[in-house]
Design a protein around this nucleic acid. Sequence first.
DNA 1: GTCTATAAGCCGATAGAC
DNA 2: GTCTATCGGCTTATAGAC
Lengths: 190, 190
Amino acid sequence: MTISTLSTREKIISAAAALFYGEGIRSTSVDAISAKAGITKRTLYYHFNSKDELVEAYLLSRDQPTLDLYKRWFEKTPGSVDKKIEGIFREFGLAAQSPKWKGCGFLRTSAELAGTPGHPAIQAGAAHKKKFEAWLRDILADGGIDAPDDAARKILVLLDGAASVMLVHRDATYVDAAGAVAATLASKAR
Amino acid sequence: MTISTLSTREKIISAAAALFYGEGIRSTSVDAISAKAGITKRTLYYHFNSKDELVEAYLLSRDQPTLDLYKRWFEKTPGSVDKKIEGIFREFGLAAQSPKWKGCGFLRTSAELAGTPGHPAIQAGAAHKKKFEAWLRDILADGGIDAPDDAARKILVLLDGAASVMLVHRDATYVDAAGAVAATLASKAR
DNA sequence: GTCTATAAGCCGATAGAC
DNA sequence: GTCTATCGGCTTATAGAC
């Protein structure tokens, strides 16, 4: 998105990401993706062997941008680590109130593809969540929190739980409640 | 399932529930449901006006049985409320390790249908989650826990987070970690 | 590398008989 | 209330020209 001239492959992934996230995997046809990308279906199948491969590419393309977004939310909140962790939940709750927000793409894709356990996109989702958890652990360790591995794991569950409940109720007070628990987990004195 | 003679409508819902849960909503065809129910597609459309109506009926049929299951898990664990709450997570983690387990049907359906916000099945899922949260609150209030509304809400997020992460990693230690946090929330001294 | 055209089959839903 | 038969459209993926 930074450079106006995208390669054909990048245009395809960008179109696929928008549709897969907005409408779901099975609800999105290869026809719709190629139309949005401004190319033909045959060209799409020149760059990707199957729709499944395209789903995997979609999640791989969202890995780093998603990590960067949470990193920004963490850094923009002033104060100690627990306040910064709570800030992540606050920012997330605000973003998730928008009608454009349709849940965590990694969790939603894993949920939709749960019937086919070996799917490469599920592995891509798992890899992203592991990276996110490792980033949380590093943050907590830098802040001098005891047992950062354990705390990171618990905060990850709270964040993914907040995203899941938010998709059902569209009520940000659940996110705030989760953030309050996460803040106590990210404070040294407990 | 308790009586061997199911009505046609019940046979359809039972078949639909098994396929929707096992394979997902969009991946399940009306053809497959009628075949599994042992009736023709025309008969299915005599009892239900659309596939969407059938998806809603699937979640409505799982509401009470799901509440009963968690109630049993709570009651079978001895000790104080916090131990009983932790017992729910332990039992859930054990059940979720089975390959047959494919996540929380309510959350997975909400995730797959996130592209169509007004869908009746999403409302059915939200109603179920509200009932579950109310049951948690009553349990905590009976156990003498302070601010049971707040605690119930936080434990709900932890349980749904555990279900979501479990679907990605298939690692029950995440569920145990969530259960430990829930137990502290369900103890009077905190 | 991108195009037009189409294969081969599955989709949800319906008509009309009994 | 259940059946057989089928509609019209959409699905992923491919063949062959340029």
